[in-house]
Design a protein around this nucleic acid. Structure first.
Length: 477
RNA sequence: GGCGCGGUAGCCAAGUGGUAAGGCCGAGGACUGCAAAUCCUUUAUCGUCGGUUCGAUUCCGUCCCGCGCCUCCA
């Protein structure tokens, strides 16, 4: 299993440091509202990594946090007259529901920032003791970036550049005064309590306040995965400053390498533009479900792009994914023995991917999902056509099962078969049935003109006639 | 300005130094009185201009176009 590493900017083999368990951490959501599809493509990609590591036999241990305290959660909870915990609980529940719909596996641990305050304070204390942090005039504790040798090693930014630059291309001023910091690049480890924080504060050696954003990830990843662990993932926007700061504070506190491999998922574009509320291209999962798209189709659409390549999410693409999913089910129906499901072939280590080898190679080489999908379709097409002997098929079926598991694609052939059988059972209103019967009679009499006129009439009323060997059936359009 | 990414058929999207996977849509054919469904077949010389090479879409350089990050946004 190989993956691009942001740190080295190279594709390299993934190996568990302890030789047994592959320990990974993914930056989870800030729960202040429903997560949007941009958030979900990142979590879906992390999910695919987790699943692929499992199939590859790397025994992954997966931690994904919930950020339940920050400016937005505090402000929004106050606006709605809710306590912070009740408010974040509500959105955490919603997040979990959406994850289930998208078929995201549940992480082994899902720690919350507010439940790890002592651990965070502990890191700040270590940084203070070692001279990497200082308390500003405002009471907040800041990390002194220039005290860390390697600041910028992940994002490949030059710290000097960051320090001297006073504006960026977006025209925003990097206003140092606002933060009471020694240096613009310094960031808050512990934020002093402000009146607008209300009851949302904790006691610390530096007074009342709350942890800074980056700190929670350092504290929780170290707690659950150790001071050095295997992989850390998140959206590309987190590369800097979030992950850079995590590295700085963690390595300065422990004196050890923080994380060996970094994965960043590109942002999702929607209809060619960055997703934003003002452009009207801002979607949460429910918006798409309301439009009649299935969560699985959304996942399929995600799969059609490589995680390091910007994916343009469009309704056209969603339609294509829906069709492709249908085709996948049809091919599987032909390949699977009667009464069998793909899930019947799951489990155990798959060492031989048979005719699906190319697909597995693509997936296990930097998670090339579009290539894996392509190779899988090619292989399935051949299998559906040739229908090999049961014994020969066994290897391929196990491979397909493992591959679809890694991609997180659930295709239930039984339900497809049932669906097909169930189609004629749809209730047809009496008047529609009468029209259909009239057409059938006209057809028998070879009165094509009348028959077609009746078909047209039914069409306008929202029903279509499908002629079969036995006669005909009526279905809603 | 700094760092980085991309421009492959109508759309989406892999890929390779030796003339280009897959999906969607479309077209043609089979089937059908017609239609639907299904099956079969089919659609590209890879942004521009140069260079290296026996040979480049694939390597190097130029230009044009699009995009991301640059302090709390996945």
């Amino acid at each position: 299993m190989k993956l691009f590493n942001t740190l080295s900017r190279e594709i390299s083999e993934l190996t568990p440091l302890d030789g047994n368990q592959f320990r990974m951490y993914v930056c989870g959501p800030t729960v202040y509202g429903p997560a949007h599809i941009g958030n979900f493509i990142t979590f879906t990609r992390a999910d695919i990594l987790y699943r692929t590591l499992k199939v590859a036999g790397l025994n992954p241990y997966y931690v994904r946090n919930i950020t339940d305290v920050d400016d937005k959660t505090i402000r929004s909870s106050q606006e709605q007259g809710m306590t912070l915990s009740a408010f974040t609980e509500k959105w955490t529940t919603k997040f979990h529901e959406d994850c289930a719909l998208l078929n995201l596996l549940i992480p082994d641990v899902e720690p919350r920032a507010t439940e790890h305050i002592p651990e965070q304070i502990d890191i700040v204390q270590k940084l203070m003791d070692k001279g990497h942090a200082y308390q500003g005039a405002d009471g907040s504790v800041y990390y002194r970036v220039k005290s860390f040798c390697c600041y910028g090693k992940l994002s490949h930014f030059d710290p000097e550049e960051l320090r001297t630059q006073d504006t960026n291309s977006a025209g925003r001023a990097n206003d140092a005064d606002e933060y009471e910091r020694d240096n613009v690049a310094d960031f808050a480890l512990w934020k002093a309590r402000k009146p607008e924080d209300g009851d949302n504060y904790w006691e610390s050696p530096w007074g009342q306040g709350r942890p800074g954003w980056h700190l929670e990830c350092s504290a929780m990843s170290i707690k659950y995965l150790g001071e050095t662990f295997d992989l850390h993932a998140g959206g590309e926007d987190l590369c800097f400053p979030h992950h850079e700061n995590e590295i700085a504070q963690s390595e300065a506190a422990t004196g050890k390498e923080f994380c060996r491999h970094w994965m960043h998922s590109t942002h999702l574009m929607v209809e060619g533009k960055k997703m934003s509320k003002s452009l009207g291209n801002f979607f949460v999962l429910q918006d798409l479900l309301d439009k009649g798209y299935s969560a699985m189709a959304i996942r399929m659409a995600f799969l059609n792009g490589h995680y390091r390549q910007q994916l343009n999410f469009t309704f056209n693409g969603l339609d294509a994914a829906t069709s492709a999913l249908g085709k996948l089910a049809e091919m599987l129906e032909k390949i699977l023995p009667e009464g069998k499901e793909l899930s019947d072939y799951r489990g155990g280590i798959v060492s031989d991917f048979g005719s699906l080898s190319n697909a597995w190679m693509a997936l296990s080489n930097d998670l090339n999902t579009p290539a894996a999908l392509g190779a899988m379709f090619s292989a399935l097409k051949k299998l559906a056509k040739t229908k090999p002997q049961v014994e020969a098929l066994e290897v391929d079926l196990k491979a397909i099962a493992a591959l679809t598991y890694a991609l997180g694609l659930e295709v239930e052939v039984a339900s497809l078969r049932k669906q097909q059988e169930a189609k004629p059972v749809v209730e047809v209103p009496a008047d529609i049935a009468a029209l259909a019967e009239k057409r059938s009679e006209a057809k028998k009499a070879k009165d094509w003109g009348t028959a077609d006129a009746l078909r047209q009439e039914l069409q306008e009323k929202g029903w279509k006639i499908i002629d079969t060997r036995e006669g005909y059936s009526v279905e809603p359009c």
